[in-house]
C-alpha cells in the first residue's frame, strides 16, 4: 500500500461552478506516484474542467488540491508557478505556437524557466523530439505537420522540463488507431522510465485499457466509479455499464414535455 507521502496528487471535496451551474460536485481521489490515472466520462461531464483545476488553470469554488503534499489551491501565484514547473500539460489541440518552429516550441519552457546553456537546450529538444518519433522535424513549422505529429510535438513540449506529473487532455482524440496506439505505448514507456505520474482525460476505451492503472468515471460532475479496469467492468452502476457497452441514451422526453421545452409554456 502506498505511503501517504507517495500520493503525488490528492483532490479533496472539490466543487467547481460556472456561474450558478455546478460542474464538479464533491470530487475526492488521490493518485500514487508513478501511476496513470484516467478520468473517464461522457462529453460535458466535467473531466476537462477537473484537469484544468489540477494544473492550476482554474481555481475551484471550494475544496482542495494537494500536489506532493502541498495545498496547491491555497498557494499564491508565485507558489503555483513553482509547482507548475513540475507539471507538463499535453493539450487537446496541441496548442503549439504557429509562429515558431517545432523545435522552438519544445525549447520554449526551457528557455523561459531554466538557466541551461543554449547548447544543452538544443540537445534536450532533439532528444524529446526523437522520443516522440519526430527526430529531424525541429525546423518544421506546426502548419507543416499532420494532426498526429502535432499531438506528438505537443507531448514533446509537455515533457521538455522533465516533469514529475504529466497531464493529457484527450491525447488520442482524432488520431487513427495505429497512431493512437503508438501514443498510448509512448505514455506507458515514459511512465515506466521516469516513474511519471500521469493524469489522462479521455473517452477512448481502447486507450484506457492500455494505459490506465486507475480509472475514475465521472457523470454529471460526480464520481460514479473508481478503480482498475476490472472493477469498472464489474460495476453495477447503470451509467458505467451503458458507457462500456456503448449504448445510446433512452429516448427521454415525451411529446408534451418536448413541446414545453421548445415553447417555454406551462
Amino acid at each position: 500500500m502506498a505511503n501517504v507521502n507517495d500520493y503525488v496528487i490528492e483532490v479533496r471535496d472539490l466543487v467547481v461552478k460556472y456561474g450558478e451551474r455546478t460542474v464538479l460536485d464533491g470530487i475526492n481521489f488521490r493518485v500514487p506516484r508513478g501511476q496513470t490515472f484516467v478520468i473517464l466520462g461522457g462529453s460535458g461531464c466535467g473531466k476537462s474542467t477537473l484537469l484544468r483545476n489540477i494544473v492550476g488553470l482554474m481555481r475551484p469554488h471550494s475544496g482542495r488540491i494537494f500536489i506532493n503534499g502541498q495545498d496547491f489551491t491555497a498557494m499564491n501565484d508565485r507558489g503555483r508557478i513553482a509547482v507548475r514547473k513540475k507539471m507538463g500539460v499535453c493539450f487537446q489541440g496541441s496548442a503549439l505556437f504557429n509562429s515558431m518552429t517545432v523545435g522552438d516550441n519544445v525549447a520554449l519552457p526551457l528557455r523561459e524557466h531554466t538557466k541551461l546553456e543554449e547548447s544543452t537546450i538544443e540537445i534536450m529538444t532533439k532528444i524529446k523530439l526523437e522520443l516522440v518519433g519526430l527526430g529531424g522535424f525541429e525546423d518544421f513549422m506546426p502548419a507543416e505537420l499532420s494532426g498526429g505529429m502535432k499531438k506528438r510535438a505537443g507531448l514533446a513540449r509537455a515533457m521538455a522540463m522533465d516533469p514529475e506529473i504529466i497531464c493529457y487532455d484527450e491525447p488520442s482524440a482524432g488520431l487513427d488507431p495505429i497512431v493512437a496506439a503508438g501514443l498510448d505505448a509512448l505514455i506507458r514507456k515514459m511512465q515506466h522510465t521516469f516513474n511519471l505520474t500521469s493524469i489522462v482525460v479521455t473517452h477512448e476505451m481502447s486507450s484506457v485499457e492500455l494505459i490506465a492503472d486507475t480509472v475514475c468515471m465521472l457523470k454529471d460532475g460526480r464520481i460514479v466509479e473508481m478503480g482498475d479496469m476490472g472493477r469498472l467492468r464489474a460495476s453495477s452502476h447503470p451509467f458505467v455499464q451503458q458507457f462500456l457497452d456503448r449504448r445510446p441514451d433512452e429516448e427521454g422526453e415525451g411529446g408534451s414535455e418536448y413541446l414545453r421545452s421548445l415553447t417555454g409554456g406551462d
Binding site: T114, L116, S119, T120, I123, M124, I127, K128, M159, D162
Partner: peptide, 11 residues
C-alpha cells in the same frame, strides 16, 4: 538523471 543530464553527456 533527467534529459538535461543526458544532454550534458552528449555535449
Amino acid at each position: 538523471m533527467d534529459s538535461s543530464g543526458v544532454a550534458t553527456l552528449v555535449e
